[in-house]
Lab assay of single mutants.
Amino acid sequence: EVTIKANLIFANGSTQTAEFKGTFEKATSEAYAYADTLKKDNGEYTVDVADKGYTLNAKFAG
């Protein structure tokens, strides 16, 4: 089991951190699915991958 950390950075400057656990593939998929649920209210996002894929920095356009 691994933990994927998602740093969510919103256009207004606020941030949120979420963690997803499971296999690498499952946890990564859940992190992206969570970011997708936030698109409606926060706009499209881009992701910078860090820490060999164990940290995802998602920046929302607003």
Rank of each mutant, 00 (worst) to 15 (best):
Lys5Ile: 14
Glu19Thr: 13
Gly62Ala: 07
Ala50Tyr: 10
Ala33Gln: 09
Asn7Glu: 06
Ala61Pro: 08
Thr28Ser: 08
Asp41Tyr: 12
Thr55Ser: 06
Gly53Gln: 03
Thr28Ile: 12
Gly62His: 07
Phe24Thr: 03
Lys26Leu: 11
Ala35Gly: 01
Ala27His: 02
Thr46Arg: 09
Ile4Arg: 00
Tyr45Asn: 00
Ile9Asn: 06
Val47Gln: 01
Phe10Asp: 01
Ala50Ser: 12
Gln16Leu: 14
Lys40Asn: 10
Ala35Trp: 14
Lys21Phe: 13
Ile4Asn: 00
Lys39Cys: 09
Ala35Pro: 01
Thr28Met: 13
Glu44Trp: 10
Tyr45Gln: 02
Val47His: 03
Thr55Gly: 03
Ser14Ile: 14
Glu30Cys: 12
Lys40Thr: 11
Thr3Gln: 04
Phe60Gly: 02
Tyr32Val: 06
Phe10Cys: 06
Leu8Trp: 11
Asp36Tyr: 03
Phe20Met: 01
Val2Thr: 06
Thr28Val: 12
Gly43Lys: 01
Phe20Asn: 00
Glu44Pro: 14
Ala31Lys: 01
Ala31Val: 09
Gly22Asp: 05
Ala50Lys: 11
Ala18Phe: 15
Phe60Asp: 03
Glu25His: 09
Gly43Ala: 02
Ala27Met: 01
Val47Arg: 01
Asp51Gln: 05
Lys40Glu: 11
Glu1Pro: 10
Asp51Gly: 03
Ala50Phe: 11
Asp51Asn: 08
Ser14Val: 14
Asn42Ala: 11
Lys59Asn: 12
Leu8Ile: 13
Tyr32Lys: 06
Ser14Met: 13
Glu1Gly: 08
Gly22His: 00
Ile9His: 11
Leu8Gly: 03
Ile4Met: 02
Lys39Ser: 10
Ala27Glu: 01
Gly62Ile: 06
Phe24Lys: 07
Asp36Ile: 04
Thr3Glu: 05
Tyr32Ile: 12
Phe10Thr: 03
Ala6Gln: 05
Lys52Ile: 06
Leu56Gly: 04
Gly22Lys: 00
Leu8Asp: 00
Val47Pro: 03
Lys52Trp: 12
Tyr32Phe: 11
Thr17Asp: 05
Ala11Asp: 07
Val2Ser: 06
Ala18Tyr: 14
Gly13Phe: 04
Ile4Ser: 00
Lys40Phe: 11
Lys21Cys: 11
Thr15Ser: 11
Lys21Leu: 08
Asn7Leu: 10
Asn42Phe: 15
Asn57Trp: 10
Ala18Thr: 10
Glu30Lys: 09
Gly13Asn: 06
Gly22Trp: 03
Phe60Pro: 04
Thr46Cys: 13
Val2His: 06
Ile9Val: 10
Ala11Ile: 09
Phe20Glu: 02
Thr17Ser: 11
Val49Cys: 08
Ile9Met: 11
Thr55Leu: 08
Lys26Asn: 12
Leu38Trp: 13
Phe24Asp: 01
Ser29Cys: 15
Lys26Val: 11
Lys59Trp: 15
Asn7Trp: 08
Ala33Asp: 08
Lys21Asp: 04
Gly43Met: 02
Gly13Pro: 00
Asp41Lys: 10
Gly62Leu: 07
Glu1Phe: 13
Thr37Lys: 13
Ser14Trp: 12
Thr23Met: 06
Tyr34Ser: 01
Gln16Thr: 12
Thr23Ala: 08
Lys40Asp: 10
Ala33Thr: 08
Asp51Tyr: 02
Ala27Thr: 02
Gly13Gln: 05
Lys26Arg: 12
Thr37Ala: 14
Gly22Met: 01
Gly13His: 05
Ala50His: 10
Ala27Gly: 02
Lys52Gly: 15
Ala31Trp: 06
Tyr34Gly: 01
Val2Gly: 03
Glu25Cys: 13
Lys59Leu: 14
Phe60Asn: 02
Asn7Arg: 06
Gly22Val: 04
Gly53Ala: 03
Tyr54Gln: 06
Lys5Glu: 04
Glu25Lys: 08
Tyr32Glu: 03
Glu19Tyr: 15
Ile9Thr: 11
